[in-house]
């Protein structure tokens, strides 16, 4: 086979790792955020173990708020990725420069609305997909549907909300995200960490320790939270800019 069929005749600019916004609030909050998320989870852990469904449901609200605060404060919204120089290059020739709007308006238009859209997409698209994946991996098929759905929702909020915010909904970008072709940054690291954490979270379930917290889906959610924090940290520092190679 000599001709390589390429569905993208125009080669795309190589994706760059996401930088957090260059302001003090962003730099501060990006470190504060994981601590807040973990403490929030730790605070609710007891009630989640006691009765997972209501506790996990109510935990979704503060998690959403924290995640929205995180993306709005720290991350560049979609189409705004990378440094400003890159943004200039990306602008298509002939495109008009928009008039500069007011600061608050910018805040709402450029940050808050995309953040809420990301939340919506994470809940409506990512959650069902992740829930289905959980079932495929062996989650109970006839019982515990709400448990599994809530577990999927937590994973979605942790992993996909920031990704949707920074990368939008472009199909090709999402192919690259799923195919693990993007360079690692703290957002992508958060996704990988959450998923790996949830995977590892399945390990203690079969053990015969007879602990309350071994019940479905506590360990998975816990693994996802810890994985998110570790992944975000490692992705933003140690592995930043690295690419995942399969071969």
């Amino acid at each position: 086979m000599t001709t390589v069929i390429n569905s993208h005749p125009k080669p795309r600019a190589p994706a760059n790792p996401i930088d957090i916004l260059n302001n003090d609030a962003a730099k501060l909050y990006t470190h504060l955020h994981p601590a807040l998320v973990l403490s929030l989870y730790a605070y609710q852990f007891r009630s989640i173990v006691a009765d997972p469904v209501p506790a996990l449901t109510s935990a979704l609200v503060p998690l959403s708020i924290l995640q929205i605060a995180y993306v709005a404060t720290c991350l560049p919204p979609t189409g705004n990725s990378g440094s400003s120089t890159l943004q200039q290059e990306k602008r298509k020739p002939g495109e008009k420069k928009k008039p500069v709007p007011g600061k608050v308006e910018v805040g709402i238009n450029v940050k808050i609305i995309p953040a809420f859209l990301s939340l919506l997409l994470s809940l409506l698209v990512a959650t069902p997909l992740l829930t289905a994946t959980l079932v495929l991996f062996g989650a109970p098929i006839t019982t515990h549907h709400t448990h599994t759905l809530l577990c999927g929702a937590h994973i979605a909020l942790l992993s996909t909300l920031p990704l949707v915010y920074v990368h939008g909904v472009d199909g090709e970008t999402w192919r690259e995200i799923v195919a693990m072709l993007l360079p690692i940054d703290e957002v992508y690291g958060g996704l990988i960490g959450t998923v790996v954490g949830a995977w590892v979270g399945a390990v203690p379930i079969p053990l015969d320790w007879d602990r309350e917290w071994q019940k479905w889906p506590v360990t998975i959610v816990t693994g996802a939270y810890i994985g998110f924090v570790v992944g975000k940290l490692v992705g933003g520092t140690l592995l930043r800019g690295k690419k995942i190679m399969f071969e």
Binding site: V4, I5, N6, S7, T133, L136, F137, G138, R175, V178, A179, M180, L181, W199, A202, P206, F246
Partner: peptide, 24 residues
């Protein structure tokens, strides 16, 4: 159950890997 978990993991990985292929 562990084997189910591993086989699904393999399937997910090959899905990812397939998405990395050049040929549509």
């Amino acid at each position: 159950e562990i084997l189910l978990h591993f086989l699904c993991t393999f399937g997910v990985l090959t899905t990812l890997s397939s998405l990395r292929q050049k040929k549509t």
